[in-house]
Design a protein around this nucleic acid. Structure first.
Length: 594
RNA sequence: GCGCCCGUAGCUCAACCGGAUAGAGCAUCCGCCUUCUAAGCGGACGGUUGCAGGUUCGAGUCCUGCCGGGCGCGCCA
């Protein structure tokens, strides 16, 4: 079973092949001119260039062969050499029946599934997530779901940032503020307290709010004061050496952070298979450093141990990978490299996708090159999927009115508040129990946030305008939910009336368009998969919703005569299935009613 | 300075391997609820794709230069 586009593409490919031309030329795309055709084939134009023939002649020969295809009612040459294809109502009806009978609503499963890791979210210990984490979470979650839906074995890893210099800064800052805790840290060190024992009660005083308050201050002090910085580095080294005092205090940092992070991720409908942190690969670092040295990759430079990754022909001077700092600490890139090694040993991924801010492109290039040099990964197995920043209405990175960084939790709360307002304005869900109304508002908020983000291509920055995206009209998440809920309501009513679904028979233009929209699901998924671009799926979900909405307006369903009603009910339920699958890939779930 | 990304309708964004008349949404204007949820549907208005060259039968897309914006360039992550 395959979509019409692909099936017709094979037929057209065979036609090209029979003329002694490459079959790839038969690629079929949706028509740019829906007034003229359903699909088109452009291959005659490049073929003509290659073969130095008249494109219209080649097109005519291909079209002639396609005319025998039972699915087509016409295959005509137009313009400089386009082949326009019109599909018969019967072929559309058959395709619609296939989609309706398919729990995957026409989406295929990969012939050669891969093992994939998606590294996204990028939360850090001691720092609440802010708007900057929104895109990484939303895009990463969608990429993970997309790859999984297509048939790959996928693990999503939060890759907790929990092991760097920032930890040393915080340990120092906490000790400064609480002399008694400083004393406790010293005592634990002296007693060689067990690392995996209970976290001392005294540490429970430290909350995420404390860490959030102290971190910026400590970071600033570290920048200004070399002595402060050196102490933080020393404490970082102590933590990495697993001195009990620093380590147990750090475990408290991790603990308080994770609770808050899980709450935020849960509110966004984001969940991870792995909560690996940088600290988890710490044990691999000494061996890895030795291995790099053995392989002759590690060299000393300005007191640090580095791996040079520059290549001849590089357009720019790529910095080396800093493996061990002059202080003897592991760096950001060190843990990244060790993580690649860890994943190779534990999971053996064919592909690792890093969903991280575009600004880190150079960093990943360096790490990936080092990994390939060391034999921890092969060329092309590591992919950095960068994304642009989310800007405020002024076109600059999003800030609160006060100029601070907006916390993710506050952003979600704000959006929920707007969702409630909008529901009330529209008079929706008024008679529902409070809990259900709240659940709906939460889903509307998540849909608004995610769809606004995912309908843009990930690579470009976009403007996050609260007023705009909470305006639930037009091309928005809530519109999609609304369409899904409308279908659900319709199907419930049909069931109550005892109206049965039956075989699809396409007749009306709105029905044709709806089936053509349904048929495009697979190609949207495939494009999104190949380009790491969920916006193709978002676009599809919107087009499908729109096609349904037109169908809904043009074609009465429950009042139609039984056979027509049966056919339209099948179309409606197939639409719902596909829409919910598409939304699920985007990480959006639909309520039963609203 | 070097490198990467971006510049498309008044605003926010699309455009699959270079294809026909560059598409959506918002905003503005005009229609449509005694019929399945009007957060909807139909229609109108809106473009020299930053500028100038080049390649091509054909360029928003590829190449060169310029203008404008964002970002990155060794011990933070």
């Amino acid at each position: 079973m395959s979509d019409l586009k692909k099936a017709l593409g094979e037929a057209a490919g065979a036609a090209f092949a029979s003329l002694g031309l490459p079959a790839e030329l038969g690629r079929v795309t949706a028509s740019d001119r829906p007034d003229l055709a359903d699909f088109q084939v452009n291959g005659a134009l490049p073929a003509a260039k290659q073969a130095k023939k008249n494109p219209r002649e080649i097109a005519a020969a291909v079209a002639e062969r396609l005319k025998g295809d039972g699915r087509l009612i016409s295959a005509e040459v137009a313009g400089p050499g386009f082949i326009n294809l019109k599909v018969s109502d019967q072929a559309l009806s058959e395709r619609a029946r296939e989609i309706a009978a398919d729990p995957r609503a026409g989406a295929e499963v990969l012939a050669a599934p891969r093992r994939v890791i998606v590294d996204y979210g990028g939360p850090n210990v001691a720092k609440p997530m802010h708007v900057g984490h929104l895109r990484a979470s939303i895009i990463g979650e969608s990429v993970k779901r997309l790859y999984r839906f297509r048939g790959d074995t996928v693990l999503g890893d939060a890759h907790f940032g929990d092991w760097g210099y920032q930890m040393g800064l915080l340990i120092g800052a906490v000790c400064d503020e609480h002399p008694d805790l400083a004393a406790l840290v010293a005592r634990l060190n002296a007693e060689a307290a067990p690392l995996d024992g209970p976290i001392p009660e005294a540490f429970e005083r430290i909350t995420l709010a404390d860490l959030d308050r102290l971190y910026p201050l400590a970071a600033a002090s570290g920048k200004e004061d070399p002595a402060y910085r050196d102490r933080a580095r020393r404490l970082t080294a102590e933590l990495q050496a697993k001195r009990p005092g620093a380590y147990l205090l750090w475990r408290r940092f991790r603990e308080v952070t994770q609770v808050a992070l899980e709450r935020d991720f849960h509110a966004l409908g984001v969940d991870f298979d792995l909560w690996k942190g940088e600290s988890d690969v710490d044990r691999l670092i000494p061996g890895m450093v030795e291995d790099l040295r053995d392989k002759g990759l590690l060299v000393e430079d300005q007191g640090a141990q580095i791996v040079r990754v520059a290549r001849q022909g590089d357009k720019r001077d790529l910095p080396p990978l800093l493996v061990v700092s002059s202080e003897g600490s592991a760096m950001y890139g060190t843990t990244d490299l060790a993580t690649i090694l860890d994943r190779k040993q534990s999971f053996g991924p064919d592909l690792a996708i890093y969903v991280v801010d575009q600004r880190q492109a150079d960093h990943f290039e360096v790490v990936f090159r080092a990994a390939c040099l060391a034999g921890y990964a092969e060329e092309g197995q590591l992919q950095h999927i960068g994304f642009g920043t989310m800007n405020g209405p002024d076109g600059k990175p999003f800030k609160t009115r006060e100029g601070g960084v907006l916390k993710l939790n506050d952003l979600i709360e704000m959006t929920r508040g707007k969702a409630r307002e909008r529901l009330h304005e529209a008079g929706l869900g008024e008679d529902l129990p409070v809990e259900e109304f709240e659940a709906i508002a939460a889903k509307v908020a998540v849909a608004a946030l995610k769809f606004a983000d995912l309908s843009n291509f990930r690579g470009t920055s976009y403007v996050f305008d609260l007023d705009r995206f909470t305006s639930f009209e037009g091309k928005t998440g809530p519109y999609l939910l609304y369409q899904a809920v409308r279908v659900k309501s319709l199907l419930r009513k049909a069931e109550a009336d005892g109206a049965l679904a039956g075989p699809v028979v396409v007749a009306e233009p709105a029905e044709r368009d709806l089936v053509l929209a349904l048929d495009a699901f697979e190609s949207a998924l495939s494009e999104a998969y190949d380009r790491f671009a969920p916006n193709a799926v978002a676009e599809h979900a919107y087009r499908l919703s729109q096609a349904f909405s037109k169908f809904y307006a043009a074609c009465p369903i429950l009042q139609a005569e039984p056979q027509v009603r049966a056919a339209r009910l099948t179309l409606a339920s197939a639409t719902l299935t596909q829409l919910e699958l598409a939304l699920d890939v985007l990480g959006v779930s639909t309520p039963e009613r609203m």
